[in-house]
Computed example of a mutant assay.
Amino acid sequence: MNKLETKTKRFEDARPQLMGLAYRMLGVVADAEDAVQDTFLKWQAADLAGIRNPDAWLVTVCTNRCLDILKSASRTRMSYVGPWIPEPLQTETIALQEEDLDRAQSLTTAFLLLLERLTPKERAAFLLKDIFGKSYDEVARTLGMTEAACRQLVSRASKSVRQDQARFTPSVEQQEAFLAAFQNALATGSADRLEELLAETVSLRSDGGGKATAISRIIEGRHLVGKYIARILGRLMTDVRLERREVNGIGGLVTLDGDTVVTAMTIGYAPDGTVDRIYLIRNPDKLRHLTAPARHDPATGGLRFH
């Protein structure tokens, strides 16, 4: 194997983790792919003789490219039509161990939206330290900050994240029970069983991005959400096919018109097992990556798309 092949292989070995970091940072697959590709181009042009720690170099370049993308993304999202929800992923989670739960939970839609509350540098510092296990020294070097300033960033981000319960992952049985009740409500027009599984403070939001029909306001409360699902969605989904799929690491549903995905539903759960967040993504630009699962390795946080 020549030097170029060795260099390329080293990058390809790092690609899944870089993609996992970039997707969590940006919430958009195409943007994450751009950040990783830009990192690859810089890697190809770099002189390895001057790089003492290739993995740290790659993470630094990718993280800072994500920060640049977030600057322009914040302006775009200000003019977004309706609620903005991260782009959903059809996932295939492999070999989930108890010690890997933090990384697995950090892929859920509810958690990605929680990260939106943080400043870009808080988001980067928190993900690198708490999710990808980098030392404070490594995070500080990546972000070009002092270690003390980096500790403050992570501390602020951690407090914000821990105030919310979006990181809870339910059992398979709890997920199956909710999906069955949801489908029953669509089929029968009755939300009685469904409402038993909804939290009092449950919210439902729909993202059409001005390109697909979607409710423009957030619906809140067990009774209103249950009634909307049973009476409104039940009518809207009569002519489409429903399939259960793993979406962002959680059991979800997609609706298809022929072979085209027109809606993806992903869910957030409260620690008592009730559902407290329902997300319906209908913007067709965000559904293109639901044709095949991305392999998610919770041990590393890596995402492999091909």
Rank of each mutant, 00 (worst) to 15 (best):
K134M: 03
L113H: 12
G258H: 10
V172E: 13
T260D: 00
M265W: 11
T266M: 13
D31F: 14
L48E: 10
R241C: 01
L290P: 03
I219N: 06
P271C: 01
L303P: 01
P16G: 00
P293R: 12
E5C: 11
N64K: 12
E122P: 00
Q44S: 12
V36L: 01
P293T: 11
P86C: 10
A124H: 11
T109Y: 09
A148E: 10
T274V: 12
E5A: 10
L153C: 08
L96C: 01
E116Q: 12
T188M: 03
T263W: 07
A149Y: 14
L233A: 04
D47R: 15
G268R: 13
G20C: 01
Y136P: 00
F126K: 00
R75Y: 07
M1V: 12
A95N: 14
G251N: 06
I278L: 11
P271F: 04
H296R: 11
T213I: 09
S79T: 15
A264S: 00
R151P: 01
F40W: 09
T109P: 04
T6C: 08
R304N: 06
T39L: 02
L107S: 06
A104D: 02
P54Y: 09
L204Q: 07
H306L: 07
G234V: 09
E200C: 01
C62F: 05
V36Y: 02
H306C: 03
E195H: 07
R241G: 00
A110G: 01
S160V: 05
L115C: 13
K3W: 15
V262A: 04
A214S: 09
V275W: 11
D259C: 03
V172R: 15
K121E: 05
D38H: 15
R167A: 04
V161H: 07
P170L: 03
K134S: 00
Q90N: 08
T6W: 12
W57P: 07
G189F: 11
L143W: 10
L194T: 04
M25Y: 03
P284K: 14
L153A: 08
P120S: 03
A125Y: 06
D207P: 08
A270R: 05
R217Y: 10
V172N: 14
T109V: 09
D102P: 03
N2A: 06
I51E: 04
V225L: 03
T300V: 04
S160Q: 05
P170D: 01
K71S: 08
L26W: 02
D13Y: 11
G133A: 02
A191Q: 14
L236A: 07
D239R: 10
I69L: 15
A148Q: 13
V261T: 06
Q17V: 06
T238D: 06
S135G: 02
T63R: 14
F40S: 02
I219E: 04
A32Y: 07
T255I: 02
T108Y: 06
S158P: 04
K42G: 09
S79E: 13
N283W: 10
T142N: 13
T260F: 03
D38Y: 15
A270W: 03
D38W: 15
H223Q: 13
Q17P: 00
K9E: 10
H296S: 05
A191F: 15
W43T: 02
L21E: 01
L280C: 03
E200W: 05
D285W: 09
V61G: 00
